[in-house]
Amino acid sequence: MGCPVRLLTCNIHHGQGIDGKVKLQRLASVLQQYNPDAVALQEVDRHLPRSHLRHQARVLARYLSMYFAFAPTINWLGICQYGMAVLSRYPISRHQYHPLPAGTEPRGLQVTRISLREEGFLLLNTHLGLDYREREIQIKEIRKILRLLNGPVVLAGDMNTEKLAIPELPVTPVPTLPTFPSYRPRFALDRIFASCHWQVVHAMTLPTTASDHLPLLVELVLES
């Protein structure tokens, strides 16, 4: 059994805390304390006025001394964008974006390969829809993609539901941990699922009011 890999997922709400103020460094300070190996982020802005025109994925990556890959789900004039990002302490050797069937808001699946040691692993990042029928269609599409992948895989993100099982990724923390709303967590909307190559060592939420969701941190090890 190898060394634990610390994976974190968080819907950052474009850096806006429950006080209504956008303070990206506040969130970065929380993440830095827990020293994750890789991070899956949702609701990330790039050059939007509401978040001071910053490329948030790049800013967080620089603050945490990590590599990053940004995947926009919404574009305005090709300049202002909104979407997801993966940060990693190790090089990101692959990055793809798969649009998912969606309703009122575009949704997608970000696929990255994290070059950890020899084999590496695939880290997938998503933010599912609000409507359960929409989510069912999106999960079916994600499962199709998963069946085409080989080797260790982790899927992280804001699933917008507590009732979710993915047969291709049976390893997940039990019990689920509530992450929303951050000031009084009741719903386990943010989840991490892994292929049978992995074993869960530890899972916890990080106390913070830097977003309306709590970050979820999961330690996994690759089984020998």
Rank of each mutant, 00 (worst) to 15 (best):
C3V: 12
C3Q: 14
R6Y: 11
R6K: 15
L8C: 08
T9E: 07
C10M: 09
I12L: 07
H14A: 01
G15Y: 03
D19R: 05
G20T: 06
K21V: 15
Q25G: 04
R26K: 13
A28V: 04
V30D: 07
V30A: 13
V30W: 09
Q32R: 15
Q33E: 14
Q33M: 12
N35E: 11
P36Q: 09
V39P: 06
A40N: 01
Q42P: 05
E43A: 01
D45T: 10
R46D: 10
L48H: 00
P49C: 02
S51A: 15
H52I: 05
H55K: 06
Q56C: 04
R58T: 13
V59K: 06
V59M: 07
A61Y: 02
Y63F: 13
L64N: 02
S65E: 14
F68H: 15
A69R: 12
F70R: 01
P72H: 06
L77E: 09
G78F: 06
I79T: 09
I79W: 15
Q81Y: 05
Y82N: 05
M84E: 15
M84C: 11
L87R: 07
R89Q: 13
Y90S: 13
S93C: 11
Y97K: 13
Y97Q: 14
H98Q: 13
H98P: 03
P99C: 08
P101T: 09
G108N: 12
G108W: 08
G108E: 11
L109D: 03
Q110P: 02
Q110L: 15
Q110R: 06
L116A: 14
L116V: 11
L116I: 12
R117E: 15
E119F: 07
G120I: 08
G120M: 08
G120D: 11
N125L: 03
L128S: 05
L128R: 00
Y132D: 12
R135C: 00
I137L: 09
I139R: 11
K140N: 10
I142K: 03
L146W: 06
N150S: 15
G151P: 10
P152G: 10
V153P: 03
G157K: 06
M159W: 11
N160R: 00
N160E: 06
T161P: 07
T161Q: 04
E162N: 01
A165I: 00
L169W: 01
V171G: 02
P173N: 07
V174M: 00
P175F: 02
L177I: 13
T179Y: 03
T179L: 01
F180T: 08
Y183F: 12
R184T: 04
R184C: 13
L189F: 15
Q199K: 15
Q199A: 14
V200M: 04
H202S: 14
L206N: 11
S211R: 03
D212Y: 05
V218F: 00
E219A: 08
L220Q: 04
